[in-house]
């Protein structure tokens, strides 16, 4: 089993600073090696000299890499994760994600085989709350495995940062004409509650309150995150690409612009490993 790695993507944009801080904190707390991946040589020089010095003088194992001209960031990242399968990819979130073509953040989310942390804000994770979005009623085994991974990771982080963990679940608005048991709001609530409780006891994760609300998912999860002033949101992704990605998109990408907190996205494939 290989050691867990942290891979931080940096560019000269001032927003990257939050990612740097976050990565440093994680490396510090977990004593993990941190690799900096500069997007270009030009980025290397400049703003971060102070923080970098601090980083280099700390006891974190630091490696610096740089993208060659014309080299694709995604390919580089994939090469890295192939070499070190147990990586956590960290990047500062772009300001917005509009435009006709998928932005870089989305491309990373869709192609990553490892968890991706997109950092948006300065505030500390210490004390939490941490929200973890799960689908307790999902039937497919990969989805169930993903639920477990999400809960376990959220517990780890919760313990690490002494933060409360809240599972957040969105249920879909009932459709008229559906099966009778799907039509009652109360029954839906009850079903989701029971499934979540079962899942929690199954994984041995202790959670504070369970936040269940009416979807669509990106609306409820974002609103719960805002109401509870979450510092971190964990979510899985189906990582739809190509035409499916263009038409249907991914909920994690939708949430990226709707939440103020950091977003930690687990790819669906991860659910297959233990």
């Amino acid at each position: 089993m290989s050691e867990q790695q942290l891979l931080l993507i940096l560019d000269k944009d001032a927003a990257s600073e939050v990612a740097l801080v976050r990565a440093a904190e994680l490396a510090q707390r977990q004593q993990l090696p941190l690799t900096l991946l500069w997007q270009s040589e030009a980025d290397k020089a400049g703003l971060w000299t102070q923080q970098l010095q601090a980083l280099k003088s700390s006891d974190i194992r630091l490696t610096e890499l740089c993208l060659a001209d014309g080299q694709s960031l995604q390919k580089r990242v994939i090469a890295f994760t192939d070499q070190h399968p147990d990586t956590l990819l960290i990047k500062a979130s772009e300001k917005d994600h509009k435009g006709l073509l998928p932005p870089l953040d989305w491309k990373l989310l869709r192609n990553a085989t490892c968890p991706v942390l997109l950092v948006k804000q300065h505030s500390q994770w210490q004390g939490g709350p941490i929200l973890v979005a799960i689908e307790p009623l999902a039937q497919a085994p990969e989805r169930q495995a993903l639920n477990r991974s999400l809960l376990q990771m959220s517990q780890q982080l919760g313990q690490l940062f002494n933060a409360t963990v809240h599972p957040v679940i969105a249920w879909d608005t009932p459709m008229l004409g559906d099966e009778p048991e799907q039509l009652s709001d109360e029954a839906q609530l009850q079903r989701h509650q029971n499934a979540t409780a079962a899942l929690l006891s199954d994984t041995g994760v202790e959670a504070d309150s369970i936040l269940i609300g009416e979807g669509p998912a990106e609306h409820w999860i974002a609103s719960a995150a805002a109401d509870h002033k979450a510092v971190l949101l964990l979510i899985g992704t189906k990582a739809r690409r190509g035409i499916a990605g263009a038409l249907l998109g991914n909920t994690s990408e939708q949430l990226l612009d709707r939440v103020d907190c950091d977003l930690l996205v687990l790819p669906g494939a991860l659910g297959e490993t233990a």
């Binding site: 009932p174 008229l176 004409g177 009778p180 048991e181 799907q182 039509l183 009652s184 709001d185 109360e186 029954a187």
Partner: peptide, 11 residues
């Protein structure tokens, strides 16, 4: 009928 059905499902 669809709407009636949903209220009946709610009990």
């Amino acid at each position: 009928y669809s709407r009636l059905s949903s209220y009946l499902a709610e009990g």
